[in-house]
Design a protein around this nucleic acid. Structure first.
Lengths: 177, 177
DNA sequence: GTCTATACACCGATAGAC
DNA sequence: GTCTATCGGTGTATAGAC
């Protein structure tokens, strides 16, 4: 699926990879759709775990940016997005995961964001996080296409904002100095 | 392709739509791939035309945002993106169109952006335009999935920034007053 | 669990009649 | 230009032997 698109994810192609007959797929999964759903869930669960870990780190906002901008498989995410276009179940699950991950990020970051954001009426936690997320997503998509122009500048812009919103923590040693 | 994904774009499905036999596709296009490429080019050429028109308007930055955030077919764009994952020709053309459209926008907007941007070292024209573009793209993708949480807030954030960067033009009548 | 055998539909593409 | 006929290949899925 990653290499050749969701159209290439067939019972025969799966079976060939593991050196078995294609009929075995229907023994473990009832239909090909079930296999796709299971794959999608495993993929998303891994991402959610990474996200949770990032949000627990010392600089969660920076970590959120890093996790968003460096997903394990940008091309795979695109493939699932297309699948969602015409698979109702995938679409529903993807929407649910998306909302959940955003809620998780907002809940754990809104406290510190509200304190430091300029123009709090405009720069709400949700808006800030979505902006970060959007830029990360586009950079990922671009990269998998082979586009990289403007990435350095956009990355600098994001990281400049991040430093404002979440300054480097001062260690006790530095405080003494 | 829009309704059921690129996997459903077959010579037979195309022929059925126009009430002819599927073999005709190979008369007009040599292969199915050629048809896909031609469709992609027509799609992108339309978008480029819309973009050019927007950049010629009175408030080009606002128009750029509107064009980016309201593409004719968000789902179709996603489908082409997936196609690009495993079709080298589509990938190359998409990259070229992407770079071209960004260059076009930067060239026609960098003049006025450089004048008004705060922290010009960070808020370069390219970075600003890519940020706008990124948020527009994600809102489009979200919408086609059925996600809309956070959109109002992000839209307000973008439009607040846009008003700062490109204030409403003052008409001669208003100037008199 | 893994296999063989098989049904049935659909795909891209070509050849050749009209 | 549009058609009929046809090829070989691949897809999902089921039945049943071992």
């Amino acid at each position: 699926m990653l290499e050749q698109g969701y159209g290439a994810l067939t019972s025969r192609s799966v079976a060939e990879r593991i050196g078995l007959r294609h009929q075995l797929v229907y023994y473990y999964f009832q239909t090909m759709d079930d296999l796709v759903i299971a794959t999608f869930r495993r993929h998303m669960d891994r991402f959610m775990q990474r996200l949770e870990d990032a949000l627990k780190s010392e600089r969660p906002l920076h970590a959120y940016w890093e996790v968003s901008a460096n997903p394990p498989h940008g091309a795979l995410a695109k493939e699932f997005m297309s699948l969602a276009n015409h698979n109702e179940q995938i679409r529903g699950e993807m929407a649910a995961y998306g909302e959940r991950s955003r809620r998780l990020a907002v809940e754990s970051l809104s406290g510190r964001l509200q304190k430091v954001a300029p123009e709090p009426e405009v720069f709400t936690p949700y808006a800030i996080l979505m902006a970060i997320n959007s830029m990360a997503l586009v950079m990922t998509f671009d990269s998998s296409l082979g586009i990289s122009s403007g990435h350095v500048e956009m990355r600098q812009l994001v990281e400049w904002c991040l430093r404002r919103l979440e300054p480097e923590p001062v260690s006790p040693v530095q405080q003494l100095a």
